[in-house]
Design a protein around this nucleic acid. Structure first.
Lengths: 219, 219
DNA sequence: CCCGTTGTTGACTCATGAGTCAGTTCCGAC
DNA sequence: GTCGGAACTGACTCATGAGTCAACAACGGG
């Protein structure tokens, strides 16, 4: 008996009205979750609002009570997933407070791949659907990207001034890193060799740090 | 007076009938070119067959004389552009017959970036639109990718057995290379710093070969 | 010069799906 | 209890766009 006469905490079932702000927030989440699944499965254009409604076990009209338009729903989804990814990475970095740049970098990349591995729908959403809606969503996606690239750039710049990373435009490097990660994540969707995410992550980091050419010196 | 009574070699104008196979082939090309422009500009879904027809200065119905469906048109476009890219790269490699692997690799990457720089519409087509149509085009795109990745893999494997490249799954490396190139090409569409394609290409190759960590040994 | 073929045209059909809205039901307040 | 409003419903509207088709026009062969 939490808040009041808590009917049943299954907000997903229709015909049960969301009254409190928490209820409404929860139902919003239900819709978002359903939408993520459906969008990821069929793609933005092939997905109808009816599909979303059905997946959320809610009426057609109700979706519009929570989201003004299909676009708005998708934007909300993107925001949601960006946040989720960020907090997942942050979580992975918590017990690395005093570690060096390489360890942080490695952990971040690993966390990213893990996140994408756990929930492939996010990948489809962000790197497939979001890309297609040219302009409208491009801007939004670019913003999300921008955030991560900025973070990477900072790390790189710090490593450069410590002499751990070769001199080159930090931004260009950051771009490349982000590109490599995102594109590999996408590719893993279709080409599933059994290689686990953490291995791919380590491979990427090592590739970036050491390059393809064999090194003669011992580290 | 080439073939016969060569009316006017402007096959793009409507109301001029394409009779010979060459004429038809040329008109097909006109449609493809127009379609490329329009698809690239507005994206697959936002583009109507009417748009294509208008851009090709041809009637609505005529587009369907040359292509059965919108999907077929798009697939044809993808084929067309793959071929164009391949021959552009091949062209760049002609006078490198006896060169070493690194030179070939560098030249290939540079040619690729140049190709994408010259015609940004291709990039949009292949890496934006094609990705969105889940399944139908994914397969096709994966096939195209596959071809290039196979080539890269071969080069890498050769370099490995010559001891010029570190031991690691050649396929994974090839994936990464392709990922880096394609994603950077896409990114350059939206974020246009003035950096020319050849510089980006060299940067990518050097990054891949030498890595971010400074090398102590002299080559 | 006529006729069959083949290319060309654009108005039309028809399915689809986003968004609306008039109505219904549930809830808390009084 | 009953009232007002907020949450909810789903049938409907309306625009849009892929694909069709009947008519038309250029061409080449006879």
């Amino acid at each position: 008996m939490a808040t009041r006469r808590s009917r049943s905490n299954d907000v997903s079932a229709a015909r049960v009205r969301a009254v409190s702000d928490e209820d409404k927030e929860r139902r919003r989440e239900v819709i978002l979750t359903a939408a993520k699944r459906v969008f990821a499965k069929k793609g933005y254009h092939a997905t109808t609002m009816g599909d979303v409604a059905k997946a959320a076990r809610i009426s057609y009209g109700s979706v519009y009570w929570y989201f003004d338009t299909k676009d708005a729903l998708f934007h909300a989804l993107m925001d949601d997933q960006e946040l989720a990814l960020r907090s997942h990475i942050d979580g992975a970095l918590i017990d690395l407070a005093g570690a060096d740049g390489e360890a942080v970098f490695r952990a971040s990349v690993r966390a990213t791949f893990e996140f994408f591995e756990q929930d492939r729908d996010v990948v489809k959403l962000l790197f497939r659907d979001a890309v297609v809606l040219g302009d409208r969503f491009d801007r939004h996606l670019a913003g999300i990207y921008e955030g991560f690239i900025g973070d990477i750039e900072e790390t790189i710049a710090a490593a450069q001034s410590a002499g751990h990373v070769v001199e080159a435009p930090a931004r260009m490097i950051a771009f490349s890193v982000a590109a490599l990660i995102s594109q590999l994540a996408v590719r893993r969707l279709t080409t599933d060799d059994g290689v686990p995410a953490s291995v791919v992550a380590d491979f990427v980091v090592t590739l970036l740090l050491d390059g393809l050419r064999p090194r003669k010196e011992k580290p």
